[in-house]
Design a protein around this nucleic acid. Structure first.
Lengths: 199, 199
DNA sequence: TAATTAAGGTACACACTGTATCTTAAGGAG
DNA sequence: CTCCTTAAGATACAGTGTGTACCTTAATTA
């Protein structure tokens, strides 16, 4: 603690946000791989003890930050945010834009860190992430139902294929990461997603 | 060193392979994130000094292991291994099988570690990896040329879309990782790749 | 056999981890 | 307003890993 006296000990949400922000800045600077509780504590001007009490690993912290940020960015679950825009192409563009906005707002490094841990920790994380995958499948089912209701001819595909829009955004953000603009998203829709889903 | 006397100091390839194998085993055990030079040195029964002399980071070591393994598994560059099987479907299946075999033989963790670093280290790695991406594009061009020569109608797509087969295998190995069998690869070909590339 | 090269040993200062123990500020209940 | 509970923050310690420097000596080559 730098300042002694009254009003020097933060709690609850104020402290949390300070830790979140410090963590995000640190990840941008040193990367997820080099992220340490020690540095987070320094940056957030708190104590390592506080961090260890709440999170076992930096991954647990990151996960919490994502959840916090997602609700802030989207303002609610993804499935409530998709709309019937009048065409499958428009709906897919809207979906990709929404999902992409998460990567931009939450920060690539953090989103990719999650993806990486999914590839490493076979057991404990899968529960959380399988859940996320299932939610994404439901989003796509709803989106394709819009198209069917409009009379568009939709192919019957497996659940695994329904995750394709999300997978594409993930790959884009790992490999390309810069210049993922509307034009790029349109290319994904026109060259990949529409041929896959539209009969 | 455990044993003193003659023939106790390994060099060159024998030492290298010992280090490679120890690293692979360690990654399987503790994951890339927790991989340390110290543990590698112990497991390979060598000295940390030896490791630091040759590799600056565990990532550099991993990268070398992949190159070593790839030539062992495939027996040469990927572009020389694809064949005209008589149909685009057959060619794509063959390509996916080859690329998937890398993940199985080299170990998921290591392949994913590379992917993760690609997402983190924007600068230095991109040169290597952009190169790899370009090679993959050439592979797909060659494969699609087989199809054109046979008279199959092939869509004109952007280069970024040509990396789709590789991207799909990557995603599979991050998220699903178990049960990526022939049936799964067939689904990728029939539901995604053929609709994208075949007119 | 001598010279060169590289493996292996030892040591050091520093950073991070995880845990335990203690103090004390903040916020609520009465 | 005071007491009490809760949680923030300070301090300390043993263990592990890092990166580097310096030295010794085995293996290879000339």
């Amino acid at each position: 603690m730098k300042v002694t006296g009254r009003n020097t000990r933060r709690r609850g949400d104020i402290l949390n946000e300070s830790i979140y922000n410090a963590t995000i800045e640190l990840i941008k600077k040193v990367g997820y791989h080099n992220l340490t509780f020690q540095q987070i504590a320094n940056a957030a001007e708190t104590s390592r003890t506080v961090l260890y009490r709440r999170w076992k690993t930096t991954y647990d912290l990151i996960r919490e930050i994502i959840e916090y940020k997602v609700t802030n960015v989207l303002g609610g679950p993804l499935i409530d945010k998709i709309e019937d825009t009048g065409s499958l192409r428009g709906d897919l563009m809207h979906l990709l834009s929404l999902y992409q906005s998460l990567y931009v707002e939450v920060d690539h490094e953090i989103m990719n860190a999650i993806l990486f841990e999914m590839g490493q920790n076979k057991d404990k994380i899968s529960e959380i992430e399988i859940n996320a995958t299932n939610k994404n499948i439901l989003v796509m089912r709803k989106l394709l139902q819009f198209a069917k209701n409009r009379g568009e001819k939709i192919k019957e595909v497996s659940d695994a294929t329904l995750t394709l829009p999300f997978d594409l955004i993930r790959v884009e953000n790992i490999l390309r990461k810069d210049g993922i603009d509307t034009k790029r998203l349109e290319l994904l829709v026109d060259e990949i997603l529409l041929p896959v889903f539209l009969a």
